[in-house]
Amino acid sequence: MTTHELVVMGASWGGLAALGLVLSGLPRDFGAAIAVAQHRGVEPADAVLADALARKSALPVREVHDKDPIVPGWVHMAPSDYHLLVERGGTFALSTDPREQYSRPSIDVLFESAADAYASRVVGVILTGANPDGAAGLARIRRRGGFAVVQDPATADRAAMPEAAMARAGADEVVALSEIAPLLTRLCGRVPATEQARP
């Protein structure tokens, strides 16, 4: 039985290559929804990042609009210059609150709200990055019974973010980048295509 319904992922420096690798390793019938906060500059146009990742993934990649439903099998990207939050009742919310850890979207904001709303049904994944954003969020996920995955710092473009997460939150699994997709697939299971809402 699958208990994990939502995967939240946070990445900063070097994150795009890592995200591309993880997403390309997930099967079409991946069993959970995915939400991603990737640090980046303010984009001059919409959804450049989502478009780039969509090319790598068998799953639909979408930039989130306020109050969008959380859809299993979809990859939901935090828009540039907004925080992405998970609400109870299976929807996202956005906010323009100040940057946290110099970042908007902030990984902590996404992870902490996901922990509150999904408790033990969420998996948090910290990927490469050069700052400590996400550590507090991952700690909250663990306290609420969720599952914490950290990219092995030795396989990370920048090790500071995974190291900070491990120091503050610990981890249920520390795995090489290439092992993250198979691990998530085991944790979240697979759903026959007919049961999934496809765009």
């Binding site: 900063s12 980046r40 500059g41």
Partner: peptide, 13 residues
Amino acid sequence: HAPPIPGHEARRG
């Protein structure tokens, strides 16, 4: 890896 674009990393505060 590609050279970072200014403003990409988190040190934008």
